[in-house]
Design a binder for these strands. Structure first.
Lengths: 156, 156
DNA sequence: ATTTTATAGAAATATTATTCCTTAAAAATT
DNA sequence: AATTTTTAAGGAATAATATTTCTATAAAAT
Protein backbone atom coordinates (compact mmCIF):
# COMPACT_ATOMS: atom_id res chain seq x y z
CA UNK A 1 0.00 0.00 0.00
CA UNK A 2 2.14 2.88 -1.19
CA UNK A 3 -0.64 5.39 -0.89
CA UNK A 4 -0.65 8.90 -2.28
CA UNK A 5 -1.29 9.22 -5.97
CA UNK A 6 1.10 11.37 -7.95
CA UNK A 7 0.28 13.15 -11.18
CA UNK A 8 0.98 10.09 -13.30
CA UNK A 9 -1.34 7.90 -11.26
CA UNK A 10 -4.09 10.49 -11.35
CA UNK A 11 -3.81 10.83 -15.12
CA UNK A 12 -3.86 7.06 -15.51
CA UNK A 13 -7.02 6.74 -13.43
CA UNK A 14 -8.67 9.67 -15.18
CA UNK A 15 -7.95 8.11 -18.53
CA UNK A 16 -8.95 4.56 -17.64
CA UNK A 17 -12.24 5.80 -16.21
CA UNK A 18 -13.07 7.17 -19.65
CA UNK A 19 -11.29 4.64 -21.88
CA UNK A 20 -11.12 1.36 -20.05
CA UNK A 21 -9.74 -0.53 -23.01
CA UNK A 22 -7.08 1.91 -24.12
CA UNK A 23 -3.83 0.14 -24.95
CA UNK A 24 -0.94 0.57 -22.54
CA UNK A 25 1.09 2.20 -25.27
CA UNK A 26 -1.55 4.83 -25.97
CA UNK A 27 -2.06 5.36 -22.27
CA UNK A 28 1.67 5.80 -21.77
CA UNK A 29 1.80 8.30 -24.60
CA UNK A 30 -1.20 10.19 -23.24
CA UNK A 31 0.41 10.69 -19.85
CA UNK A 32 3.90 11.22 -21.26
CA UNK A 33 5.60 8.24 -19.71
CA UNK A 34 7.16 5.20 -21.36
CA UNK A 35 5.14 1.98 -21.56
CA UNK A 36 6.98 -0.06 -18.91
CA UNK A 37 6.55 2.21 -15.91
CA UNK A 38 3.05 3.06 -17.09
CA UNK A 39 2.02 -0.58 -17.05
CA UNK A 40 3.71 -1.08 -13.70
CA UNK A 41 1.62 1.69 -12.21
CA UNK A 42 -1.59 0.32 -13.66
CA UNK A 43 -0.85 -3.16 -12.35
CA UNK A 44 -0.04 -1.84 -8.91
CA UNK A 45 -3.26 0.13 -8.66
CA UNK A 46 -5.13 -2.98 -9.75
CA UNK A 47 -3.33 -4.97 -7.05
CA UNK A 48 -4.13 -2.40 -4.41
CA UNK A 49 -7.79 -2.57 -5.34
CA UNK A 50 -7.86 1.07 -6.25
CA UNK A 51 -9.05 -0.11 -9.62
CA UNK A 52 -11.96 -2.41 -8.87
CA UNK A 53 -12.24 -3.74 -12.38
CA UNK A 54 -13.10 -2.98 -15.96
CA UNK A 55 -16.53 -3.19 -17.54
CA UNK A 56 -18.25 -2.59 -20.82
CA UNK A 57 -21.15 -0.15 -20.55
CA UNK A 58 -24.09 -1.07 -22.75
CA UNK A 59 -26.73 1.12 -24.32
CA UNK A 60 -29.93 0.32 -22.45
CA UNK A 61 -32.20 1.84 -25.08
CA UNK A 62 -30.61 -0.18 -27.88
CA UNK A 63 -31.09 -3.30 -25.80
CA UNK A 64 -34.79 -2.47 -25.56
CA UNK A 65 -34.58 -1.44 -21.92
CA UNK A 66 -36.40 1.85 -22.08
CA UNK A 67 -37.65 2.39 -18.56
CA UNK A 68 -35.54 3.38 -15.57
CA UNK A 69 -37.01 3.88 -12.13
CA UNK A 70 -35.91 4.70 -8.63
CA UNK A 71 -37.90 2.89 -6.02
CA UNK A 72 -38.07 3.73 -2.34
CA UNK A 73 -38.86 0.74 -0.14
CA UNK A 74 -40.15 0.79 3.44
CA UNK A 75 -39.79 -2.18 5.75
CA UNK A 76 -41.94 -3.31 8.65
CA UNK A 77 -39.04 -4.18 10.92
CA UNK A 78 -35.47 -3.03 10.89
CA UNK A 79 -33.90 -6.34 11.83
CA UNK A 80 -30.80 -7.81 10.21
CA UNK A 81 -32.83 -10.85 9.12
CA UNK A 82 -35.30 -8.70 7.23
CA UNK A 83 -32.56 -6.72 5.57
CA UNK A 84 -30.49 -9.72 4.59
CA UNK A 85 -33.47 -11.53 3.14
CA UNK A 86 -34.42 -8.53 1.04
CA UNK A 87 -30.89 -7.92 -0.15
CA UNK A 88 -30.23 -11.48 -1.22
CA UNK A 89 -33.58 -11.72 -2.97
CA UNK A 90 -32.96 -8.52 -4.89
CA UNK A 91 -29.48 -9.67 -5.84
CA UNK A 92 -31.08 -12.36 -8.01
CA UNK A 93 -33.16 -9.90 -10.02
CA UNK A 94 -31.32 -8.56 -13.07
CA UNK A 95 -33.62 -5.53 -13.20
CA UNK A 96 -32.07 -4.25 -9.98
CA UNK A 97 -28.87 -2.41 -10.77
CA UNK A 98 -28.46 -0.76 -7.41
CA UNK A 99 -29.75 -1.20 -3.88
CA UNK A 100 -28.85 1.32 -1.22
CA UNK A 101 -29.73 1.42 2.45
CA UNK A 102 -30.46 5.07 3.08
CA UNK A 103 -31.26 7.65 5.73
CA UNK A 104 -33.44 10.69 5.48
CA UNK A 105 -36.65 9.39 4.02
CA UNK A 106 -39.57 7.31 5.09
CA UNK A 107 -38.03 4.71 2.82
CA UNK A 108 -35.33 2.36 4.05
CA UNK A 109 -33.94 1.29 0.71
CA UNK A 110 -33.52 3.04 -2.60
CA UNK A 111 -33.36 0.88 -5.70
CA UNK A 112 -32.33 1.70 -9.22
CA UNK A 113 -34.17 -0.50 -11.66
CA UNK A 114 -34.10 -0.84 -15.45
CA UNK A 115 -36.79 -2.71 -17.37
CA UNK A 116 -38.13 -3.05 -20.90
CA UNK A 117 -41.33 -1.08 -20.50
CA UNK A 118 -44.14 -0.18 -18.15
CA UNK A 119 -45.58 -3.64 -18.42
CA UNK A 120 -42.33 -5.22 -17.33
CA UNK A 121 -42.20 -2.71 -14.50
CA UNK A 122 -45.61 -3.73 -13.30
CA UNK A 123 -44.60 -7.39 -13.39
CA UNK A 124 -41.49 -6.61 -11.40
CA UNK A 125 -43.49 -4.73 -8.80
CA UNK A 126 -46.33 -7.21 -8.45
CA UNK A 127 -44.48 -10.49 -8.84
CA UNK A 128 -41.19 -9.68 -7.27
CA UNK A 129 -40.83 -6.60 -5.12
CA UNK A 130 -44.09 -6.53 -3.21
CA UNK A 131 -43.88 -10.24 -2.53
CA UNK A 132 -40.75 -9.87 -0.46
CA UNK A 133 -41.35 -10.48 3.25
CA UNK A 134 -41.36 -7.27 5.26
CA UNK A 135 -41.91 -4.79 2.43
CA UNK A 136 -44.67 -2.46 3.61
CA UNK A 137 -44.33 0.46 1.24
CA UNK A 138 -43.07 1.18 -2.25
CA UNK A 139 -42.72 4.53 -3.90
CA UNK A 140 -41.69 4.77 -7.53
CA UNK A 141 -40.05 7.65 -9.37
CA UNK A 142 -39.71 7.12 -13.10
CA UNK A 143 -36.79 8.63 -14.92
CA UNK A 144 -37.70 10.91 -17.80
CA UNK A 145 -34.15 11.73 -18.75
CA UNK A 146 -30.64 11.46 -17.35
CA UNK A 147 -28.51 14.41 -18.42
CA UNK A 148 -25.65 13.10 -16.30
CA UNK A 149 -24.87 9.42 -15.99
CA UNK A 150 -21.26 8.75 -15.16
CA UNK A 151 -19.17 6.22 -13.27
CA UNK A 152 -16.07 8.40 -13.07
CA UNK A 153 -14.85 9.53 -9.68
CA UNK A 154 -12.68 12.54 -9.02
CA UNK A 155 -9.13 11.41 -8.27
CA UNK A 156 -7.61 14.78 -7.35
CA UNK B 1 -28.14 -2.56 -37.91
CA UNK B 2 -28.50 -6.33 -37.94
CA UNK B 3 -30.55 -6.46 -34.78
CA UNK B 4 -31.44 -9.52 -32.75
CA UNK B 5 -28.71 -10.88 -30.56
CA UNK B 6 -27.99 -14.56 -30.80
CA UNK B 7 -26.47 -16.68 -28.05
CA UNK B 8 -22.93 -15.73 -28.96
CA UNK B 9 -23.67 -12.02 -28.81
CA UNK B 10 -25.44 -12.39 -25.50
CA UNK B 11 -22.54 -14.28 -24.02
CA UNK B 12 -20.09 -11.71 -25.32
CA UNK B 13 -22.05 -8.86 -23.75
CA UNK B 14 -22.51 -10.73 -20.49
CA UNK B 15 -18.80 -11.36 -20.29
CA UNK B 16 -17.68 -7.88 -21.29
CA UNK B 17 -20.01 -6.34 -18.72
CA UNK B 18 -18.09 -8.23 -16.05
CA UNK B 19 -14.61 -8.30 -17.56
CA UNK B 20 -14.22 -5.30 -19.80
CA UNK B 21 -10.55 -5.89 -20.44
CA UNK B 22 -10.64 -9.60 -21.14
CA UNK B 23 -8.52 -10.51 -24.15
CA UNK B 24 -10.28 -11.49 -27.32
CA UNK B 25 -8.71 -14.91 -27.17
CA UNK B 26 -9.98 -15.58 -23.67
CA UNK B 27 -13.39 -14.20 -24.61
CA UNK B 28 -13.49 -16.44 -27.67
CA UNK B 29 -12.59 -19.42 -25.57
CA UNK B 30 -15.18 -18.56 -22.94
CA UNK B 31 -18.00 -18.47 -25.48
CA UNK B 32 -16.66 -21.40 -27.51
CA UNK B 33 -16.00 -19.60 -30.74
CA UNK B 34 -12.74 -18.97 -32.55
CA UNK B 35 -11.04 -15.57 -32.11
CA UNK B 36 -11.77 -14.10 -35.54
CA UNK B 37 -15.57 -14.29 -35.54
CA UNK B 38 -15.57 -13.37 -31.87
CA UNK B 39 -13.69 -10.15 -32.52
CA UNK B 40 -15.89 -9.40 -35.51
CA UNK B 41 -18.97 -9.62 -33.33
CA UNK B 42 -17.47 -7.38 -30.66
CA UNK B 43 -16.46 -4.77 -33.21
CA UNK B 44 -19.88 -4.78 -34.79
CA UNK B 45 -21.68 -4.28 -31.50
CA UNK B 46 -19.30 -1.43 -30.77
CA UNK B 47 -20.10 0.07 -34.18
CA UNK B 48 -23.83 -0.27 -33.61
CA UNK B 49 -23.50 1.56 -30.32
CA UNK B 50 -24.82 -1.40 -28.40
CA UNK B 51 -21.58 -1.23 -26.48
CA UNK B 52 -21.33 2.37 -25.35
CA UNK B 53 -17.75 2.08 -24.17
CA UNK B 54 -15.38 0.59 -21.66
CA UNK B 55 -14.48 2.05 -18.28
CA UNK B 56 -12.40 1.27 -15.25
CA UNK B 57 -14.42 1.24 -12.03
CA UNK B 58 -12.54 2.69 -9.10
CA UNK B 59 -12.87 1.95 -5.40
CA UNK B 60 -14.40 5.10 -3.91
CA UNK B 61 -13.44 4.22 -0.35
CA UNK B 62 -9.81 3.66 -1.26
CA UNK B 63 -9.81 7.02 -3.00
CA UNK B 64 -10.98 8.60 0.23
CA UNK B 65 -14.50 9.21 -1.06
CA UNK B 66 -16.50 7.78 1.80
CA UNK B 67 -19.86 9.52 1.56
CA UNK B 68 -22.53 8.81 -1.03
CA UNK B 69 -25.82 10.65 -1.09
CA UNK B 70 -28.98 10.83 -3.14
CA UNK B 71 -30.37 14.33 -3.36
CA UNK B 72 -33.85 15.31 -4.44
CA UNK B 73 -34.07 18.78 -5.93
CA UNK B 74 -37.19 20.91 -6.37
CA UNK B 75 -37.33 23.79 -8.84
CA UNK B 76 -39.38 26.97 -8.77
CA UNK B 77 -40.32 26.88 -12.43
CA UNK B 78 -40.44 24.02 -14.87
CA UNK B 79 -39.10 25.91 -17.86
CA UNK B 80 -36.50 24.56 -20.28
CA UNK B 81 -34.19 27.45 -19.38
CA UNK B 82 -34.20 26.53 -15.70
CA UNK B 83 -33.59 22.89 -16.44
CA UNK B 84 -30.81 23.51 -18.92
CA UNK B 85 -29.03 25.90 -16.60
CA UNK B 86 -29.15 23.44 -13.74
CA UNK B 87 -28.01 20.52 -15.87
CA UNK B 88 -25.05 22.31 -17.38
CA UNK B 89 -23.96 23.66 -14.00
CA UNK B 90 -24.12 20.23 -12.40
CA UNK B 91 -22.19 18.71 -15.30
CA UNK B 92 -19.15 20.69 -14.16
CA UNK B 93 -19.19 19.27 -10.63
CA UNK B 94 -17.22 16.05 -10.31
CA UNK B 95 -19.14 15.12 -7.16
CA UNK B 96 -22.25 14.61 -9.26
CA UNK B 97 -22.21 11.16 -10.81
CA UNK B 98 -25.79 11.09 -11.90
CA UNK B 99 -28.61 13.52 -12.51
CA UNK B 100 -32.07 12.27 -13.37
CA UNK B 101 -35.24 14.17 -14.15
CA UNK B 102 -37.93 12.21 -12.38
CA UNK B 103 -41.65 11.85 -11.82
CA UNK B 104 -43.51 10.79 -8.73
CA UNK B 105 -42.04 12.97 -6.04
CA UNK B 106 -42.14 16.54 -4.96
CA UNK B 107 -38.59 16.62 -6.28
CA UNK B 108 -37.88 17.29 -9.94
CA UNK B 109 -34.35 15.95 -10.06
CA UNK B 110 -32.61 13.13 -8.31
CA UNK B 111 -28.82 13.35 -7.98
CA UNK B 112 -26.28 10.75 -7.00
CA UNK B 113 -23.32 12.40 -5.36
CA UNK B 114 -20.03 11.09 -3.95
CA UNK B 115 -17.81 13.20 -1.70
CA UNK B 116 -14.95 12.76 0.74
CA UNK B 117 -16.84 13.32 3.97
CA UNK B 118 -19.67 15.21 5.63
CA UNK B 119 -17.70 18.41 5.52
CA UNK B 120 -17.23 18.14 1.79
CA UNK B 121 -20.92 17.40 1.48
CA UNK B 122 -21.82 20.53 3.35
CA UNK B 123 -19.53 22.56 1.10
CA UNK B 124 -21.14 21.06 -1.95
CA UNK B 125 -24.60 21.85 -0.67
CA UNK B 126 -23.90 25.40 0.48
CA UNK B 127 -21.48 26.56 -2.16
CA UNK B 128 -22.74 24.75 -5.18
CA UNK B 129 -26.19 23.19 -5.14
CA UNK B 130 -28.25 25.77 -3.29
CA UNK B 131 -26.66 28.58 -5.25
CA UNK B 132 -28.09 27.38 -8.52
CA UNK B 133 -30.86 29.62 -9.83
CA UNK B 134 -34.30 28.14 -9.39
CA UNK B 135 -33.48 25.53 -6.75
CA UNK B 136 -36.13 25.87 -4.08
CA UNK B 137 -35.82 22.64 -2.18
CA UNK B 138 -33.22 20.02 -1.44
CA UNK B 139 -33.72 16.72 0.31
CA UNK B 140 -30.75 14.50 1.11
CA UNK B 141 -30.63 10.75 1.71
CA UNK B 142 -27.26 9.45 2.81
CA UNK B 143 -26.21 5.99 1.81
CA UNK B 144 -25.29 3.70 4.69
CA UNK B 145 -24.46 0.73 2.53
CA UNK B 146 -24.94 -0.49 -1.02
CA UNK B 147 -25.43 -4.24 -1.13
CA UNK B 148 -26.00 -4.07 -4.87
CA UNK B 149 -24.06 -1.74 -7.11
CA UNK B 150 -23.83 -2.94 -10.65
CA UNK B 151 -23.65 -1.54 -14.17
CA UNK B 152 -24.59 -4.78 -15.90
CA UNK B 153 -27.81 -4.93 -17.87
CA UNK B 154 -29.72 -8.08 -18.69
CA UNK B 155 -29.20 -8.95 -22.35
CA UNK B 156 -31.62 -11.87 -22.62
C1' DA C 1 29.64 12.58 0.05
C1' DT C 2 28.01 7.96 -0.14
C1' DT C 3 24.85 4.46 0.15
C1' DT C 4 20.28 3.00 -0.44
C1' DT C 5 15.91 3.01 -2.56
C1' DA C 6 12.67 3.86 -6.01
C1' DT C 7 11.45 4.47 -10.52
C1' DA C 8 12.21 5.54 -15.44
C1' DG C 9 13.61 3.76 -19.98
C1' DA C 10 15.27 0.38 -23.55
C1' DA C 11 15.32 -3.86 -25.69
C1' DA C 12 14.13 -8.63 -26.27
C1' DT C 13 10.47 -11.95 -26.04
C1' DA C 14 5.82 -13.61 -25.56
C1' DT C 15 1.20 -12.77 -26.29
C1' DT C 16 -2.58 -10.83 -28.62
C1' DA C 17 -5.14 -8.38 -32.22
C1' DT C 18 -6.05 -7.95 -36.87
C1' DT C 19 -6.40 -8.96 -41.59
C1' DC C 20 -7.15 -11.86 -45.45
C1' DC C 21 -8.44 -15.96 -47.40
C1' DT C 22 -10.90 -20.36 -47.56
C1' DT C 23 -14.66 -23.19 -46.26
C1' DA C 24 -19.05 -24.44 -44.56
C1' DA C 25 -23.71 -23.67 -43.48
C1' DA C 26 -27.98 -21.43 -43.96
C1' DA C 27 -31.36 -18.78 -46.76
C1' DA C 28 -33.43 -17.53 -50.89
C1' DT C 29 -34.51 -18.19 -55.63
C1' DT C 30 -35.72 -20.73 -59.59
C1' DA D 1 -35.41 -30.39 -54.94
C1' DA D 2 -31.31 -28.21 -57.02
C1' DT D 3 -28.83 -24.10 -57.52
C1' DT D 4 -27.51 -19.68 -56.41
C1' DT D 5 -26.73 -16.28 -53.03
C1' DT D 6 -25.70 -14.76 -48.62
C1' DT D 7 -23.82 -15.09 -44.13
C1' DA D 8 -20.70 -16.34 -40.89
C1' DA D 9 -17.06 -19.54 -39.08
C1' DG D 10 -12.18 -21.10 -38.96
C1' DG D 11 -7.20 -20.93 -40.07
C1' DA D 12 -2.93 -18.83 -40.97
C1' DA D 13 0.06 -14.97 -41.69
C1' DT D 14 1.22 -10.42 -40.17
C1' DA D 15 1.06 -6.39 -37.28
C1' DA D 16 0.56 -4.51 -32.93
C1' DT D 17 0.83 -4.84 -28.07
C1' DA D 18 1.96 -6.57 -23.49
C1' DT D 19 5.33 -8.25 -20.56
C1' DT D 20 9.70 -9.24 -18.71
C1' DT D 21 14.40 -8.31 -17.73
C1' DC D 22 18.09 -5.45 -17.40
C1' DT D 23 20.37 -0.94 -17.09
C1' DA D 24 20.50 3.78 -15.93
C1' DT D 25 19.05 7.69 -13.39
C1' DA D 26 17.21 10.44 -9.91
C1' DA D 27 15.73 11.14 -5.36
C1' DA D 28 16.05 10.08 -0.39
C1' DA D 29 18.42 8.69 3.58
C1' DT D 30 22.46 7.96 6.25
Amino acid sequence: MSNKLDRYDQMILDTLQKQGRITNQELAEAIKLSPSPCLRRVRQMEEEGLIDGYVALLNAKKLGLTLMAFIGISMDKHTPERFEALESTLADYPEVLECHLITGQSADYLLKVIVKDMDAYQQFLLNKLTRIEGVTGVHTSFVMKSPINSTALSVT
